[in-house]
Design a protein around this nucleic acid. Structure first.
Lengths: 221, 221
DNA sequence: TAGATAATGTAACCTTTGTTACAAGATATC
DNA sequence: GATATCTTGTAACAAAGGTTACATTATCTA
């Protein structure tokens, strides 16, 4: 297959992916514009998309996969905020774009992920031009505020054992797998606690028949 | 003074207040529209503006005073999220308006407060019509996301004594007073802990010469 | 296959936070 | 002024979570 045909097939592919994920939200004209200016990217698992303090010049539209969004304090301690999935965009990124400020969060691919990057100038233009885009942006902000509220509920009102169980269940939903490939230390980072605490609580969850523990692997029952 | 002149003076008053608080953001045409459709309200301290679960039909633009925004869990336990001040609007309210959903938060006047209520239909119209309004709405979302991040930092990364001191300092800024009229129990509600814990920590802050304790009154040094 | 490395299990102990109980002072109300 | 209510102080104890230390097991690598 020649280069032209190959590139052509990628582009056809991209507009099809866009229509699958965003066709119900945007009119063809806007999808076409996204297709023109957007850059299609495939991100491997565990790749860092956005680092804290980085300046943001484009915003992602998720096609498939999942991204986890983390907060970090001055001592380098982490806390998982929420996951993004297909049809989501990163409201923090939007926020940073508009304010011309540095990123307050870190974004890491939780799974192999496909997305389209949109230059921020377009995003300004489209909020004036397309009502559907405006609604999408507002809805993204809304969803993110709700996720942040949920995160606050978790850390303010729930004990660590409940948070842990919720974390495992969320992982099952995101990865669509009941067998989670994860170490106790990784969980401890996400929940901002120590490995020993997680091991202790996992053991007690196992005794309650909620999970089964294996090396590098937790089976959620 | 006749009724006409009296009402006239209120209206003149409102457009002046609007210009003072929002003149640097909005063009005269928009200020005039706000003046036409908005309702000026004076809210006494401690009045509940929005209850959890309530449907929202208008959004507030703060002219003066302050509003505290609270989250509550299923057991009725509270947690202070953040304060709103002059020039702010409630992004949660925006969010609820657009999504046609119930309020996820409670809003209570922290001080005597003046504000203008805008019907939500207008807010939709203006996002298409006025770029300045759109930017204001985006910036509100941005600010609220940042406040939520700060709240998450507080509860995830700080110990109760640090949170308490920060709380007192924030109160000083909001009320513009170093003498806070507040009981230990009220602080405990806002920080979602018990009165005994707050009394204990306040005592230790007093020993560190950071505050002075009186009945119904805390002096921040 | 020996040794290194990573992951997990667990005990012992400490700190922080939450709970219960009660005393005492301040203020309001009758 | 007597009594009730509100607010604060404090002790004693319990529970949750964090820390240190070390053993054990699995996996990787030379």
């Amino acid at each position: 297959m020649g280069l032209f045909l190959y590139l052509n097939s990628i582009l056809k592919h991209m507009i099809q992916e866009l229509k699958n994920s965003y066709g119900h939200l945007f009119e063809n004209e806007l999808l076409e514009e996204i297709n023109q200016v957007g850059t299609f990217k495939e991100i491997p698992q565990d790749f860092t998309l956005i680092e804290i303090g980085a300046y943001i010049k484009s915003m992602p539209l998720l096609i498939s996969g999942a991204i986890k969004v983390l907060r970090e304090d001055n001592d380098g301690d982490e806390l998982l905020l929420y996951f993004l999935e297909r049809g989501d965009t990163c409201a923090m990124t939007l926020s940073c774009c508009l304010g011309q400020t540095k990123s307050e969060i870190r974004a890491i691919a939780e799974l192999d992920t496909k997305l389209v990057m949109i230059p921020i100038q377009k995003m300004e233009e489209w909020t004036g031009k397309y009502r559907t885009w405006r609604n999408f942006v507002f809805e993204s902000y809304h969803n993110r505020l709700m996720e942040m509220l949920e995160t606050i509920d978790n850390i303010a009102f729930m004990k660590m054992d409940e948070r842990l169980l919720k974390y495992l269940n969320d992982k099952v939903v995101i990865t669509k797998q009941h067998n989670l490939q994860i170490t106790h230390q990784e969980i401890a980072y996400d929940l901002h606690t120590s490995r020993v605490v997680i091991s202790r609580l996992l053991k007690s969850l196992e005794k309650l028949k909620k999970i089964k523990l294996h090396r590098n692997n937790i089976e959620v029952l």
